[in-house]
Write a protein that binds this DNA or RNA. Sequence first.
DNA 1: AGAATTACTTCTGAAGCGAAAGAAAAACAT
DNA 2: ATGTTTTTCTTTCGCTTCAGAAGTAATTCT
Lengths: 387, 387
Amino acid sequence: MSTLDASWLPLSPGERAVAIEVLVHGPLSRAELARRLNLSAGSLTRLTKPLIESGLLVEKGTEGAASAEVRQGRPSQPLDMVAESRLFIGFKITEDMVYGVVTTLRSDIMARDERPLTTHEPAAVIDLLREMTQEFTRAHPRAAGIGIGVGAGVRDRSVVIRSPFLDWDEVPLAELVEEWTGLPTVVENDVAALVEAECWFGAGRGLDRFAVLTIGAGLGYGLVSGGRRVVSSEDGLSLGRGRHWMVDPHGPLTPYGERGSAVSLLTIPSIRYQLHAATGREMTYEEILGLAADGEPMAARVVDEAARALGTIVSQIANFAMPQKILLAGEGVGLVDVAGAAVEEAILANRHPQADKVNLETKVSDFHDWARGAAVLAIQVLVLGSA
Amino acid sequence: MSTLDASWLPLSPGERAVAIEVLVHGPLSRAELARRLNLSAGSLTRLTKPLIESGLLVEKGTEGAASAEVRQGRPSQPLDMVAESRLFIGFKITEDMVYGVVTTLRSDIMARDERPLTTHEPAAVIDLLREMTQEFTRAHPRAAGIGIGVGAGVRDRSVVIRSPFLDWDEVPLAELVEEWTGLPTVVENDVAALVEAECWFGAGRGLDRFAVLTIGAGLGYGLVSGGRRVVSSEDGLSLGRGRHWMVDPHGPLTPYGERGSAVSLLTIPSIRYQLHAATGREMTYEEILGLAADGEPMAARVVDEAARALGTIVSQIANFAMPQKILLAGEGVGLVDVAGAAVEEAILANRHPQADKVNLETKVSDFHDWARGAAVLAIQVLVLGSA
DNA sequence: AGAATTACTTCTGAAGCGAAAGAAAAACAT
DNA sequence: ATGTTTTTCTTTCGCTTCAGAAGTAATTCT
């Protein structure tokens, strides 16, 4: 096994296409791969041979119950990725915590950890990352790379341009972490990483056009088109995104966004702020959702207004970005469980009746999911070299 | 010249890339092409040779004043497309007229014509197209193909699925026109054709992400991503697009769209309807714009409201589709000349201050421009085979 | 006039592909 | 049981296309 250590890094374009297809779309026979990639059967034998020899792929015996369909002819020999042949570490840095996960090549989480962040000094943060990495590698020595997600603008998947909440400015994070851990490191905006992860292994798997809207302390938005994430100059503005998505000029004003903006209507702090202003009580987001579900008028009004705002934004995404699917993620999507009908209603009001129904998926995600997204980015860049 | 008649149709992928690059980005030397297409100089000699021999490209002597920059070394030999080596006919079919143009390979218009459409019977329409084509080919015998734009859903660039205003249902238009004219024919939704044309030869030239919003009797919207137009199931709903883009729930209601929708606020019939309702007088769109420019309160209010609606829609496109440029086209863009400030203001209100400025371009287009778009589609499909 | 520079051409070898033919492994038919 | 059919996978061969190297061409600079 130690022979493969550096051998499968330089993949030819053909090999990379095969590897990605198998990685993303599960076990596939050579014949099936040939059809999907528009290659001849002969080419697939050629392309898969070195991948199997290097240990990245294995011939998965037909023992699986998945091959239930009994067909004539020689049975296909599904190829699968040895997901555990390389492990990846993903981190999500928030204002007061660092979340970390260890994942397989297929981004299954093998371990997780979280530590409080007491200072924002780059040196201290890096030291914490080093410490967590050491802990991880002790249990999982096969770790091959690190991905880090930050709510900030990132250049060249390496340098944090500016982070308001960390008060960082031009911090060459990837370089520093590489130096201290010895592992190749990729840094990216947190929303961007989550979008890439969902695009490869999550809700956007195999889709050509795909949008992600995250609801949490702020709003996040990412778009995939042609199977690739659209890089936008707004990626860095994570905390500012949606402050100017005006939904209702007569809507509420909060300290977090413009009056009636998506941020003022929809984010967790804004909803808590509105209920605090109305009732004088401090309540958690979950408490508010619970009250709204029980029909408490104040909470129900705010939550309902938020749901309508969400539906409006979703329909705008559907109308103008025209994705095949929209994923709602983040800590604030519980809203949809409580007021899904209002969301649906607002979407329908803003869509042409003959247009395709909006394909909406909701995924509750915690901070470890954000860390997992960063790990996926490391997989993409370090293993498959998809720049 | 007659030797090339069918010789340059089957272009290899490499040749096609060269041809498109020269066609879209003007005269280019082999060395420059090599840089742009990431090919070696040797490959370019190989690829360009058959294209020159077939008459599609010519070595443009350095006589041009364009080569003003005197550099050291052997002067480059710019290659240019012989734009007149093939001519194309484009048609736009509206409810009461058929507009036609003859264009070069570079989509320069050589001739134009228009005829009233008295009946919507497919046979009659096709007969009119045949007649106009005959007239065109008499003056321009080099015509090599026909493109037709219709405000309807189109399948396989051939069959008109359903057109409300023509009352057509599953009309195999391309097939029929081919049969009657003997020229290869491509049919496409009119907005789609305009988007493709602008993407190749117009405002979207060379851009990766690009959006088009048309304002006229209705609204049209098209998106280009990764240099390719995004095909949407809503393409066919040309007359319905924007009826549910809600801008202001308290806005006006017109017979053309929902209350406060982009259609009710922004289209030419809606603006005329609003002024008719307010003043009792029938006025043309141009008259209304003139009055608004002169400060007449009624007209100014309606036009201003339309401008704000336009700005809102534009900012939503910018926020969610994230194009590098947005083109406003159609007969209704005169609005921007009169109330550009209000448009700008509405865009700014809905955009993050740190986000890139919206790159907005306005292009007044008449119906012949729509026909030209259809001709470009014929060029793309018939000559360069870009499916 | 010669050096330097840039553009283009020609040649060669390597890579990658498809087509075709063969081998293997199963179900199906007799 | 035995052959046939069907499908998958492997092997081989030839074709296309490319990059790289070396050579030629045309111009400016010194």
